[in-house]
């Protein structure tokens, strides 16, 4: 590459950086601006001249953000636990056990994978409502607590284990549970992590389903609580900004810690070039 081409490349990269990360930085700046800052200064100022953490304590005072965080955390915990356990067990059965109707059951999971959630969401709500789970966190978590996609991901992972490994244990008299627990499950830990991370992000970020299921404010998950911020503080963008930064912190922390799994997960998601 010539020098000019290189400069152009990094110029474009920087442009995209401003476009994609810039709004976040602006939001962060906004959340730190104090009473002494002119929000509508010409030209707009990125660095606050009167920095304060007051917006954060204000939001925490006026809106039960921590309650929302706890609710979201509880839902995420149920969803992550359900997916890791349920998908691993089912994936093992589909990949490594022989039984009648195995093809049929695999087909059911494929069909379930293809059903768009939005198109069945009213029927899901009627079901949750008639089981008395409307307006509960359990009702929010249950429908996604084992996703068909994760079952199929785990199935693929288990299929990649060489059969000799399990056969040797079988000859030694290990029953199916032992072979699963001691031989096969440890081999697929990486994919289990991917399933856990993506279930967490999905549960933490979900909006439409909690919006439909939950009605009383003390059960709100974080996304619902945030959505209300706009109504409550419409006049003060600084408070909205502080609220979004509080909501973003946990997910960015998870991302920073487990970054390589995010990228691996997307590649393991069955998308081949």
């Amino acid at each position: 590459m010539t020098r000019g081409q290189k400069a152009l490349r990094y110029g474009v990269l920087l442009g995209f950086f401003l476009l994609l990360a810039g709004p976040l930085l602006w939001q962060l700046s906004l959340s730190l601006k104090g009473a002494g800052d002119d929000l509508y200064a010409q030209p707009p100022q990125l660095v606050p001249s009167d920095p304060t953490l007051g917006n954060y304590s204000d939001v925490l005072d006026r809106v039960p953000v921590l309650r929302y965080v706890a609710n979201s955390g509880l839902v995420a915990l149920m969803v992550v636990g359900g997916n890791v356990i349920g998908a691993t067990l089912a994936g093992y059965a589909l990949a490594r056990m022989k039984f009648r109707f195995r093809g049929l059951v695999t087909g059911l999971f494929v069909v379930a994978l293809l059903v768009p959630i939005e198109s069945i969401i009213i029927a899901q709500f009627l079901l949750v409502r008639s089981s008395g789970l409307a307006d509960t966190l359990l009702g929010v978590a249950l429908p996604t607590c084992v996703a068909a996609l994760n079952v199929l991901l785990m199935r693929n992972a288990f299929q990649a284990i060489p059969p000799e490994l399990e056969e040797a244990a079988r000859v030694d008299g290990a029953g199916v549970w032992r072979r699963f627990w001691y031989i096969c499950a440890p081999q697929v830990r990486g994919v289990m992590t991917v399933v856990a991370i993506f279930s967490f992000v999905g549960a933490w970020n979900d909006f439409l389903w909690p919006l439909i299921v939950l009605s009383s404010e003390e059960n709100y998950t974080l996304t619902l609580g945030l959505n209300r911020l706009r109504g409550t503080f419409f006049s003060d963008p600084r408070l909205i900004a502080a609220g979004t930064i509080i909501a973003l912190a946990p997910i960015i922390a998870v991302f920073a810690l487990l970054q390589r799994y995010f990228f691996r997960g997307l590649q393991a998601g069955g998308i081949k070039g």
Binding site: G86, L89, L108, V111, A112, I120, L127, V146, A148
Partner: peptide
């Protein structure tokens, strides 16, 4: 567990 959830809440 997986079949129960998927049949009940999706299918």
């Amino acid at each position: 567990p997986a079949l129960g959830i998927v049949v009940t809440f999706i299918l």
